[in-house]
Write a protein that binds this DNA or RNA. Structure first.
Length: 294
DNA sequence: ATCCTATCCTGTAGGC
DNA sequence: TGCCTACAGGATAGGA
């Protein structure tokens, strides 16, 4: 669930509320996340201050003084939670607790443990295998449409799966892939290599707009994702297709459909995203929902 | 090289 | 009410 807008929301909140604080001590649980805890993390992080908050795709980079960077991914259910005062509440699945010297606390909670937290030397964190293979970050500006068209050439897999592949562009997941394709008027099952140049332009522009609007609304929450204050994001109410199977399309009133692609749910509107585009009328505006901005 | 499937994990929703 | 199963989707290893 946490995709680029959710991670960016957490990054901004960390920057606003946690940057500058110095870590006193750290407590970690024994259960492994996606990877075992970096050896010596507790000891090496103690006494460091949080200086910079970065992000690439769905990865969060927490820069500390002394040339260290924490690399974090939320996986499916990961949350960074901030407590301005020493926290008395008990929550399950809290794997890491940072105790700041001023008494505030930052927790990493992750029920399903698909998330991760690693300590790296700042100078080498970009070479980490997790980051090295990622495509460009599309926020706030996605790469030009030609970049997508070039990567897409000859591919037979569906354009929806293509957009979710982090090697092509980093940060798009299942929810925003469906939303971007709806707003671009492109059917999610189209072969990537057969998406035309004008459609890549639409996908690229809608990618920029969808991500920006979702960040503005603190991301999308269905059940798991929470902000730094344990609050849900509120972009879900703005979604056009995701999780809306059987409901009326907000553009044309037709019925939103559901299918499974690569073991993931895809939602789309058959009328707004025709599998085969009707023959273009000379001088006509592109079909589909692009024209009406909400 | 590219594509596709199975896997990790647990909370939740739906069926009976 | 309670038990059971299917499902959710982040990334990736391994097979076709």
């Amino acid at each position: 669930m946490p995709e680029l807008p959710e991670v960016e929301t957490v990054r901004r909140m960390l920057e606003q509320h946690v940057r500058g604080r110095r870590i006193g001590r750290v407590r970690t649980s024994t259960k492994p996340l996606r990877f075992p805890m970096t050896r010596g993390l507790t000891r090496r992080v103690a006494g460091r201050s949080i200086e910079r908050l970065g992000r690439h795709g769905k990865y969060l980079l927490i820069g500390l003084d002394g040339g260290l960077t924490l690399l974090s991914h939320l996986g499916m259910s990961g949350r960074w939670l901030f407590h301005p005062e020493p926290a008395v509440l008990r929550l399950p699945h809290v794997h890491v607790r940072f105790f700041f010297e001023d008494g505030s606390e930052l927790w990493f909670q992750d029920a399903r443990r698909f998330g991760m937290l690693e300590l790296h030397a700042t100078a080498r964190v970009r070479e980490s295998p997790l980051l090295a293979g990622l495509g460009p970050d599309p926020f706030p500006e996605p790469p030009p449409a030609e970049v997508f068209a070039r990567l897409a050439a000859g591919r037979t897999a569906s354009v929806k799966v293509f957009l979710m592949d982090q090697r092509h562009v980093a940060g798009i997941g299942n929810i925003y892939a469906s939303e971007i394709l709806f707003r671009a008027g492109v059917h999610p099952a189209r072969a990537t290599g057969r998406v035309r140049a004008d459609e890549w332009l639409a996908i690229r522009d809608e990618m920029r707009d969808v991500l920006a609007e979702a960040v503005e609304r603190f991301g999308t929450t269905f059940s798991l994702y929470r902000t730094l204050w344990n609050e849900p994001g509120n972009y879900a109410e703005r979604l056009f297709v995701y999780d809306r199977a059987g409901e009326p399309c907000r553009r044309c009133g037709g019925e939103i459909r559901h299918m499974v692609q690569s073991q993931r749910s895809t939602y789309w509107c058959p009328a707004c995203q025709p599998k085969r585009r009707a023959r273009a009328v000379r001088g006509a505006r592109p079909a589909g929902p692009r024209a009406a901005k909400v």
